[in-house]
Nucleic acid binder design. Structure first.
Lengths: 133, 133
DNA sequence: GCTTGACCTTCCCATGTTGGCAAGGTTTAA
DNA sequence: TTAAACCTTGCCAACATGGGAAGGTCAAGC
């Protein structure tokens, strides 16, 4: 049993975030000491690490709510977990493609820009003209 | 000369955003009619399209502030523009790498998940264990 | 036993960009 | 004259996170 600070260092989730997750219902309300301090078990820290890892993989808090429910449900079907994961992969890939498009365009523009003291600059010219759209 | 609604459709920037950009100082305060309506010139729409295009390329509003200043400065050095663009490309690429890492891990995990009615699922197991970290 | 510092509590605020809604004023067309 | 389509400002929401203030609690050292 430990304080929120200890649970935070043990799990890698800040105390601030632990309180936040509790407030939005991602975590059940923590037990409290008589004086009102939250306290946590190793089991709780385990759940916090789960959340931390899922955040690192880019899942939103809403996703994690679903994943946690499945995690706790011993009779879950793995198909559901896989669906959530693959949907997330697809979203990540859409985002990646979008960023790659931006980076590609900019890299191209920058290549044609002298990058010296002269004022003419294809980058600004493109922004000016709207990239031919 | 036109209303904000017209300027919005002409530039592709919503009226809401035009007001927002004005409020944060990205745009100078628009001129007003006697009754208080904002009005815009073709020149203004031109600037709005510049902003729109730069947003599409992923520049933050802060970046765009710099770019607009350079755009207006006829004596600017293109080196400065290029620097901003390349910094942004680097930021995009960092983000892309991060997302690719997430997507790669998840794709791998999903591949090893049966995705059927059985409860065992490598995805949850990884989240559980913390991916070996 | 008292003081001090390190913890905890709640509450409010800020980030960045965008949309939505409400209450009220203006303009335009029928 | 009236109705529709605009405009105005202001507030609220999202998402996840951090910062800070004001005040209560706990543990260690003296």
């Amino acid at each position: 049993m430990m304080n929120i600070g200890k649970a935070a260092t043990a799990s890698g989730v800040s105390a601030k975030m632990i309180r936040y997750y509790e407030s939005i219902g991602l975590l059940p309300a923590a037990r409290r000491t008589d004086s009102g301090y939250r306290f946590y078990s190793d089991e709780d820290v385990h759940m916090l690490r789960f959340i931390r890892r899922a955040r690192d993989l880019g899942f939103t808090v809403a996703d994690i709510g679903e994943l946690l429910a499945l995690w706790r449900d011993q009779g879950r079907a793995s198909a559901e977990v896989k669906r959530i994961a693959l949907e997330h992969v697809a979203a990540l890939e859409r985002k990646i493609a979008e960023l790659q498009g931006m980076a590609g365009t900019l890299r191209m523009l920058a290549e044609h820009c002298h990058g010296d003291a002269r004022p003419d600059c294809p980058i600004l010219e493109d922004l000016d003209a709207g990239g031919g759209r």
